[in-house]
Design a protein around this nucleic acid. Structure first.
Length: 273
DNA sequence: ACAGGATCCTGGGGGC
DNA sequence: TGCCCCCAGGATCCTG
């Protein structure tokens, strides 16, 4: 589900509720998550105060006062919300962090592709991000860098945008929307992309992501922000999920193909190779 | 090294 | 109503 705009929205909305709060207790559902949660982390988390909350790509980092860091990923259906303890927890709530103000930070994930890990210190956190080889944030993306990465591969543009090592945070929705915005074909081989097209793609990614953040992300099925409310960018999709519907620009039916194992939506006329 | 496919899960929707 | 198939905002492991 959640790509950069959704994760950014969650972080912005949980941050004011978390920073400065102390964790009083931790509880886990016991269901196996894709990133295994360890009950051994409950003790070191208990009593810690939240120092900061930030996003890197699609990862959420909750920094604690002892320099440990709780790192969460929402996978496809993950939700991270802060709610009153009296507010009943929905099914599939896997982690509950009771705070010192009576509220709960809850991680809910129907498909359990997400999860959380506790890194005991900054070195371990740094090593985790280094080993993941996460690319730059889209807002720091440089056209020459992107052009270089594209020139080095025969993979199609869609596959390159989904590669978190090239640029961090873009997922299936925003890859399709960005390629439409840039008027580039998702099937075009990376190495056929000139510097001007790479620069156009960079601008498109930034524009689409910023607009999606303004709308608090896209809610199709499961996604909600940190306050439990859905986003609104799904009402502004140009191609994603619009298979067979007329292109908003030229009325040609939006096509759907499978690329890099993912459904890919594009206008065959506006985005001709 | 690289690229593509399978895999981990649950649930919703469509066709019959 | 039920069953079966396909589909889903992702990362990672395995194969050729």
């Amino acid at each position: 589900m959640p790509e950069l705009p959704e994760v950014e929205t969650v972080v912005r909305e949980i941050r004011p509720a978390l920073v400065g709060r102390r964790i009083r207790a931790v509880a886990a559902s016991g269901h196996a998550l894709r990133r295994p949660w360890s009950a051994a982390w409950h003790a070191p988390l208990t009593g810690r105060r939240v120092r900061e909350v930030y996003r890197r790509g699609k990862w959420i980092v909750v920094g604690l006062d002892d320099k440990a860091a709780l790192v969460l990923h929402l996978g496809m259906t993950g939700q991270l919300t802060v709610a009153a303890a009296s507010d009943p927890a929905a099914d599939h709530t896997h982690l509950t962090f009771a705070l010192d103000d009576g509220r709960h930070l809850r991680f809910r994930d129907v498909r359990r592709f997400g999860g959380a890990t506790l890194y005991p210190g900054p070195d371990e956190l740094e090593r985790f991000f280094a080993e993941s080889k996460l690319g730059p944030e889209p807002f720091d993306l440089d056209a020459a860098y992107l052009h270089g990465r594209l020139a080095a591969t025969g993979r199609c543009l869609k596959a390159v945008l989904l590669d978190q090592r090239v640029v961090a945070g873009v997922g299936n929705i925003y890859a399709d929307e960005s390629l439409f915005e840039a008027r580039l074909s998702p099937t075009q081989p990376g190495r056929d992309t000139g510097l001007r097209s790479a620069a156009r793609l960079r601008r498109a990614v930034v524009k689409v992501l910023r607009r999606a953040i303004d709308r608090r992300g896209s809610s199709i099925r499961d996604y909600v922000g940190g306050n439990g409310q859905p986003g609104g960018f799904q009402n502004e999709f140009r191609v994603y999920g619009r298979t067979g519907e007329p292109c908003r620009c030229c009325r040609t039916p939006i096509a759907r193909v499978r690329l890099a194992g993912r459904s890919t939506h594009y206008c065959p006329v506006c985005q001709a190779v």
